Simulated assay, not measured.
Amino acid sequence: MQLIQTVVVKQILTETSKQQLFDQYQSRKLQLQKECDQLQFELKRLERTKNFSPTTLKKHFEKEIQMRKEKIKLLEFQIEQLHILPLGSELKEKEVQALIEVKVGDVWNEEAGQPTIVIKDGIIEDIR
């Protein structure tokens, strides 16, 4: 019988992976800032058309802009934490699903913990 099990994928922090993460965070931050600017522009454009209620329109756009600003703050925090982390640290990257085979007579040991795949610079370093 096959079961689906969650496997944690961790990344070992190296100079290369640290730079890649930093670039990803910066890129996402710039994208969110562009979205905020675009939303401001759209708000002003739609306010001039007078087809929508100004208060409802403004409330909706401000909510969207605020959501993006919160994500930017989170990214800034992640960038700060990235600078603090020492090389060799393990970062949880994601979780994936794996099929495992079980048969009659296998030891059922739930204390064994969740399997983990450790990656270093894109290469599998360890499977625990």
Rank of each mutant, 00 (worst) to 15 (best):
G105Q: 04
G122V: 06
Q81G: 04
E47Y: 03
K103H: 11
E80Y: 02
D106Y: 10
V104I: 09
K34E: 09
K103E: 11
R45C: 05
S89N: 05
T56Y: 14
Q38K: 13
K73T: 11
Y25F: 15
V118F: 08
I100H: 06
Q5W: 10
L13D: 01
K94Q: 13
T6R: 15
I127Q: 07
I123V: 15
S17K: 02
T56L: 15
L57E: 02
K63N: 11
L57T: 03
D23K: 08
K69I: 07
G122I: 10
Y25D: 03
R45I: 05
V104H: 09
I124W: 08
K120R: 15
T14W: 03
L57C: 04
H60V: 07
E35M: 08
L21T: 01
L39M: 14
E64A: 09
L75M: 04
Q24D: 09
A98K: 12
F61S: 03
Q33T: 05
D121Y: 11
L85F: 08
E110D: 12
V118P: 00
I4R: 13
N51T: 13
I100C: 05
T49R: 14
E64L: 12
L46W: 04
G113E: 12
A112T: 06
H83C: 03
T16V: 10
K58Y: 10
E95D: 11
K10I: 02
R128V: 07
D106I: 07
P54R: 09
Q38H: 11
K18D: 01
T49P: 04
R45D: 15
L82D: 01
V8D: 01
I100Y: 08
D126H: 13
T49E: 15
L21H: 02
L87F: 11
Q19I: 03
Q11T: 12
I12D: 01
Q97W: 08
K73I: 09
E76Q: 12
V7E: 02
L57K: 02
E90S: 04
I65N: 00
T49M: 13
L74I: 04
Y25A: 05
G122T: 11
G105S: 03
K34V: 02
Q2R: 14
K18M: 07
E35W: 02
E101T: 12
L57W: 05
G113R: 09
R68C: 06
N109H: 10
Q11L: 14
K120H: 03
E35D: 12
Q38D: 11
S89T: 10
S27L: 06
E80Q: 15
G88M: 06
L99T: 11
G105H: 05
Q20T: 07
F52A: 09
